[in-house]
Design a protein around this nucleic acid. Structure first.
Lengths: 198, 198
DNA sequence: CAGCTGACAGATTTCAATATCTGTCACTCC
DNA sequence: GGAGTGACAGATATTGAAATCTGTCAGCTG
């Protein structure tokens, strides 16, 4: 009955879950579907994930982490100035989100649905991202490029002020003409605010 | 049969519509309910509004305009500096939205539902608000308090950067502790960005 | 005759029955 | 004997028939 001789791992289940979500969408993707895709009974899936909610949480966390990891490289790019790294990081975040939303709108919509109701996962993700921002801004403060009372506060402010360019709730506006200019205007204003001598 | 002898006006219908929306919510509020509340047949309502969508659009526009009007006074408060007017205006916008959301969460949720799908009305509302912001920033540019390439662009940037504090999508976060500090951090950063000599 | 009515057709929503799914567990079978 | 199974009970989702709603319009009524 099993379609492969490979052992059933959490990772294989997550892969199958993403595939099922892609095919069926968040409302109609069932644990039974995931098990069928793997050629096992649904009881086996429950051996690795206590509940359907836990499975969804894990697959969503995995999805969010993929974005996070891509950005981490920019934080430590010592060949560029902190200001440039900040601009690059924000542009990369916008680009990554826009790409995800544009390439596979249905999967993006699926994860957008999954994400709300998963407060903890989102909170961690945001903490991760603002942590990266904090390191860039702290480097700028240390080098004298930026003048900020507190890098962590400034990082959260920058993150929230650019929400329009990374929050999934705004995804439908990411294809509008002029969005690039809006992004530049917001980032320009924020960078000037960080630079300004206090 | 009519419960009053007053003539049926668009305004009276809008008032009744808001009341019905408050009572029944957006999903269950019907034109028949509105007519019943007014003591007339639903045919009479269709004499003033071509469709249910038009009625909803009108009542939503009316609701948005009430916020707009409150803020307009701050724009022309010549006794305060442009920077202070900008801070006051943003704080008033945040406060107005937060108040609406906190006082009558169900009505707020109702209008939040109505608002999306009403692209034109929202667009006009945002144009109205950014227009007010533009006048404040232009005044600051003229007085030398601000240094900006283009007040209208800066106004849109400020508006979008503060979206977290007025966009209904974020309403549930407006009661979190620390939101005030976040607001101050974002506004502070933006004001510094506007001030900075370019 | 200007404003209002209410019966009507087609579209949409509701509700209850039916079907499917979630999560458990005693069991099987390498 | 530990990964995997599948029947099961209660929870959730689907479906289609019945009820309600939207939008129109010929005809009241003051």
């Amino acid at each position: 009955m099993p379609s492969t001789t490979e052992t059933l791992t959490a990772e294989r289940i997550l892969e199958a879950t993403e595939e099922v979500l892609r095919r069926h969408g968040p409302a109609k993707a069932t644990v039974v579907d995931v098990a069928r895709a793997l050629g096992v009974s649904h009881g086996s899936v429950y051996r690795h994930f206590r509940t359907k909610a836990a499975l969804r949480e894990a697959v969503t966390k995995r999805w969010l982490d993929r974005t996070s990891e891509r950005l981490a490289g920019i934080v430590t790019a010592e060949d560029r100035s902190p200001e440039q790294r900040l601009r690059d990081w924000l542009a990369a975040l916008f680009e990554a989100k826009r790409h995800k939303a544009g390439d596979d709108p249905e999967l993006f919509a699926t994860y957008t649905v999954l994400v709300d109701g998963l407060g903890g996962v989102v909170h961690d993700h945001i903490a991760d991202l603002t942590g990266q921002l904090t390191r860039i801004i702290a480097a700028g403060a240390e080098s004298g490029d930026f003048t900020v009372p507190d890098p962590a506060t400034a990082a959260r402010a920058v993150f929230h002020a650019t929400g329009r360019f990374h929050d999934p709730g705004y995804a439908r506006e990411w294809t509008e003409p002029g969005i690039e200019e809006e992004f530049e205007a917001v980032v320009g204003l924020l960078v000037r605010g960080l630079r300004a001598a206090g």
